[in-house]
Simulated scan of single mutants.
Amino acid sequence: MFLQLLTAAGVLAVLTMVPGPDMAVVTKRAISAGWRDGLRTVGGITGGLLLWGVLTVVGLAAVLAASAAAYTVVKLAGAAYLVFLGVQALIQSRRGRAQTADTLPAAPVGSPWRTGLVSNVFNPKIAVFYTGLLPTLAPSGLPPHAGMALLVLIHALLTAVWLGSYVMLLAKARAFFQQPSVRRSMDRIMGIVLIGFGLKVATTQP
């Protein structure tokens, strides 16, 4: 069973490190408001994973993954939220033209924890991932529900450690990112990236 868990953790680690909407949301928040807000965003994302995990264990995520209508509703809501965050970043980049090196950047709108939670909860791919892949990785020595719950906890822990480390790395370079010209460029880049992820989520199939 230990080798099965080790293999599952390796697969989950690789999937966790693949850049996606969560990393884009964390990058925007950490650069805009600092490492504390970045870590709170990571906390929200982790909370979203745990919520999906609970839904998976009780079987509701499987219903969502199997229902085209429910999947589409969650997919479009998640896509709209990512596009909203992207447009918000583009607007901030335009406002930033009037800033000088001595001007404090505007604080991001909304709770960082809620931002992370909402961006993750409205990602139906997590439901498909949990109901489609996790059962194949669950250790055979445990009851199915217990094995799935354990893998969800491992995935949440890996996500928190990976994104948390990424936030602290960004914090070390925040002085560079806070330069007005760099800040405007990063806002534009992250805005385009978030809108791109939103459009990708909206057009993908289960």
Rank of each mutant, 00 (worst) to 15 (best):
P206D: 10
P135N: 03
R36Q: 11
F197I: 03
V18Q: 06
S119Y: 02
A98K: 00
S165K: 03
F2Y: 13
F177N: 01
R174T: 08
Q88I: 04
V14D: 07
V57D: 10
P19E: 11
L5I: 13
F122K: 08
L170F: 06
T103S: 12
K28D: 15
G44F: 02
L6G: 11
F197D: 14
T115W: 08
Y71P: 00
W162R: 08
L151I: 07
P144W: 02
V201H: 11
L90P: 07
A202Q: 03
L39G: 11
T103G: 01
G38A: 00
I45G: 09
Y71T: 00
G86I: 04
S67Q: 00
P143G: 06
V54T: 12
V57W: 14
L134S: 08
A202F: 01
D102H: 08
A146I: 02
D187L: 02
L158Q: 11
A156I: 05
A160D: 05
T46E: 05
G43E: 04
G20R: 01
A107R: 11
P19N: 01
A61M: 05
T131A: 13
T27G: 11
V83Y: 05
L5C: 12
S140A: 15
N120W: 01
L15E: 09
T72C: 03
L90Y: 01
F197T: 05
M190S: 10
P112Q: 05
Q99G: 01
V182K: 02
V161L: 13
L85K: 15
V74H: 04
A33K: 01
I189N: 05
Y166C: 07
Q92D: 15
A8H: 03
L60T: 12
S32V: 02
L153Y: 06
G34S: 03
G38C: 06
H155D: 09
T56K: 03
P139Q: 01
A160V: 00
D187H: 03
G198N: 03
S111I: 00
A68Q: 05
L5T: 14
L90Q: 04
V128C: 09
D37G: 10
G53A: 03
A80G: 10
V73A: 14
R97D: 09
R40T: 10
D187E: 12
P180T: 04
T41V: 03
A65R: 06
L151W: 07
Y81T: 07
L133E: 10
L50P: 08
A107D: 15
L49M: 11
V11E: 04
W162Y: 15
V58W: 13
Y71S: 00
T27P: 11
A175N: 08
P180F: 02
T159R: 01
R184L: 00
L85M: 14
G20H: 04
A62S: 14
L133V: 13
Y166R: 08
M17L: 15
L117A: 15
L133A: 11
S181Y: 02
T7Q: 12
T100F: 03
I45E: 13
